[in-house]
Amino acid sequence: MPVVWEWDVGDRFCVLDGVLNVEDEYQLSKGVSRAQGFPADASFAMSAKHRKYIALADNISNLNRALVVSRRLKDVIEARRPRDVEFLRVSIIDHKKKVASDDYFIVNPFKVVDCIDKDKSKYRWNNIDPEKMSSCTKLVLKPEAINPELLLFRPQHLEYYVLVHPDLAAALEEEGFTGLRFTPIDEFES
């Protein structure tokens, strides 16, 4: 069963505001391919609300809920040749408005899978967008709907979350990447 990709900010890693210089940035958490024409000056600024935190993790939390990862983490994922996933280069801007790193990437899985068992899950529909769940306190998936070859994908109705094949999650945990954690489906709440 897949697990949910999450962030582990801890008490030392930076937190990022939303992505800069990218039109329709909301698509980065909706399962939309953005490789075509992705801007070379795309960047994220460290959040002013978290000025004490400047350390760069391998997986950095941000307002867009995008998967912003270090080159090392990206390379490990990319080496497994995931289907329907793109890697979009971004820079990280520090609190002094200087480039802290230009070697980060958005991992953008754009495969959306209709895999939520709506009869067994507990959720509320979004009042604005009736195709989206606004909260989910019990997530149950339909295993038969998930292609076992998919390493990363987004569940329909909760596209801003990324589900990860358990073998990939185990390999990433074994590498000891910072800022990264995975939540089992039966412990997930949005």
Results as ranks from 00 to 15, higher is better:
L139T: 06
G179E: 06
R12A: 07
S190M: 11
K74C: 11
K120T: 02
N126S: 14
F105C: 02
F188M: 06
F44A: 05
R181A: 00
N64A: 09
V140T: 10
L63Q: 12
K74F: 05
A170Q: 12
Y26H: 13
P166V: 08
Y160H: 15
N108L: 08
L152P: 04
Y53S: 11
P143Y: 05
L150M: 09
M1V: 13
A45N: 12
A40R: 15
A45R: 14
R81I: 01
G10Y: 08
S101T: 06
D24T: 08
E6W: 05
M133N: 03
D24I: 02
D103P: 05
P109C: 04
I185K: 00
I92C: 03
N126H: 10
C14W: 01
L63R: 14
Q36I: 11
V112G: 04
V68N: 05
S33N: 08
R12W: 03
G176E: 03
W7S: 09
S47G: 01
F44P: 01
D186S: 12
E175D: 03
L16H: 06
G37M: 08
K118R: 14
R81P: 01
S190K: 14
V68H: 06
K138H: 10
R89M: 03
S61D: 10
N64G: 09
V76E: 14
G179R: 03
S101E: 02
Y160N: 14
V69A: 11
R83M: 11
R181N: 10
L150N: 13
L73M: 15
L16K: 06
E144S: 15
L152R: 07
D167Q: 12
V69Y: 05
A100W: 01
V69H: 03
A145P: 00
S47W: 08
R72I: 08
V19H: 07
T178N: 03
G176R: 04
I92S: 01
F105R: 05
P155C: 03
Y53F: 13
S29N: 14
K132L: 13
L88T: 07
K132P: 03
L63D: 14
V32A: 04
G31C: 06
N62T: 03
S43Q: 10
M133G: 04
V162F: 00
H165Q: 13
A55F: 10
V90I: 06
L139W: 06
F153E: 07
H50M: 11
R72K: 15
I93M: 12
R51E: 09
Y53N: 12
H165A: 15
L16C: 09
D94S: 03
K52F: 10
E6M: 13
D102F: 04
N62F: 05
L168R: 06
G31I: 07
I116P: 06
D94G: 02
K30H: 12
D119L: 12
F188Q: 01
K132S: 13
K111E: 10
F153R: 06
K138V: 03
P143L: 04
D84A: 14
H95C: 00
P82K: 05
L73R: 05
F13T: 04
H165R: 14
E86F: 07
L163K: 01
D41A: 11
G18R: 12
K132V: 11
K52R: 13
P148K: 11
K74E: 09
V3M: 07
S29G: 13
P143W: 04
H165N: 15
V162R: 07
A55R: 11
